[in-house]
């Protein structure tokens, strides 16, 4: 019964039509082919980082510091994308950086998603004081600027990959809780939920069997959109030195290290990791945007 909506059918979709969007979203029947390909390549890169990377990302050769990419004067074929201030291979660091971003991004999105979806369902379905408490907390959370909040938490608990995931989850679960609660409020008025009560299902069974599967689409859409936000936040935290701790090749960290070399003309130390972040975030957003139109129950006829 579901008819795929044309992208222009959604007003909010039209609002997100930026120039970059038009440029990057090469569409085939609405499906964002290019963003999906980019994400796929990044995922594969992350999974097979130790196979693809030409050298160790964390050990450099001090004699080979600040080598430009291979095609520039002074470049070497051994370092296709040049080396950094410690003589480490930039390409290898970018490849392993994809792994860091993916692992941190996906786990944080899953963590935030699981917590937010669970609380959103409880809040929307049970109502009453449960709803009051959860929504008060959510509103307070949402009033705090996300990045400042994350920096504060990171400064408190100290930098490690594990902590980053927890911090990102703690900062972003509210986005899910809000959206999912709204959807549960309309779902629980649906006849099949009433009939589940008539059939004798407990509240718990109804939430698990009737509510959860019907909000999963929204959670997935939100997760895809949040992936970009989470990765940018991770990069920002790493850039500020409160994220992934130094020898690890995180893109945000590479950006921070590279910024000193910008004046000296070592552009590859900043432009390359910056582009990687941008590509990943943009791709995730475009895919999420498409999924939203495709899966959003408000837009889709059941």
């Amino acid at each position: 019964m579901s008819t795929p909506m044309s992208p222009s059918a959604s007003p909010s979709r039209a609002a997100s039509l930026t120039l970059a969007w038009r440029f990057a979203a090469f569409h085939a029947e609405g499906f964002p082919v290019l963003p999906t390909l980019i994400l796929l390549v990044l995922v594969l890169t992350a999974v097979f980082a130790n196979v693809i990377a030409p050298s160790d990302p964390e050990i450099g050769t001090l004699g080979e510091r600040f080598r430009p990419p291979a095609w520039q004067v002074g470049g070497s074929e051994k370092y296709l994308l040049g080396t950094d201030h410690l003589g480490r291979d930039v390409l290898s660091r970018l490849i392993f950086g994809a792994r860091v971003s993916m692992v941190v991004g996906l786990t944080a999105v899953l963590f935030a998603g699981a917590v937010g979806t669970a609380l959103g369902i409880l809040s929307g379905f049970l109502g009453g004081w449960v709803d009051q408490v959860i929504m008060r907390v959510t509103d307070t959370w949402l009033a705090l600027p996300a990045l400042t909040f994350a920096i504060f938490l990171a400064a408190v608990v100290g930098p490690s990959e594990m902590n980053i995931v927890i911090i990102l989850g703690a900062v972003y679960w509210t986005r899910y809780a809000r959206v999912i609660r709204g959807e549960v409020l309309s779902l629980r008025e649906r006849d099949f939920v009433r009939l589940a009560i008539v059939a004798g299902c407990s509240k718990w069974t109804i939430m698990r069997r009737h509510i959860l599967p019907n909000v999963l689409n929204s959670a997935i859409v939100l997760g895809t959109l949040m992936l970009g936000v989470v990765i940018v936040t991770e990069a920002a935290l790493s850039f500020l030195g409160v994220g992934v701790p130094p020898p690890k090749p995180a893109w945000g960290l590479m950006l921070a290290d590279g910024k000193k070399g910008l004046m000296a003309g070592y552009w590859w130390l900043t432009v390359l990791p910056g582009s990687c972040i941008m590509l990943m975030v943009l791709s995730a957003n475009l895919l999420g945007d498409w999924l939203r139109v495709k899966l959003d129950p408000q837009l889709r006829q059941l």
């Binding site: 649906r190 099949f192 009433r194 589940a196 008539v198 069997r209 009737h210 019907n214 059941l302």
Partner: peptide, 19 residues
Amino acid sequence: RRSVQAVFQDPFASLNPRM
């Protein structure tokens, strides 16, 4: 509960689309 069951008006809303 066992003895009293129901059929509602809208056949599109009364069946869980995910089951």
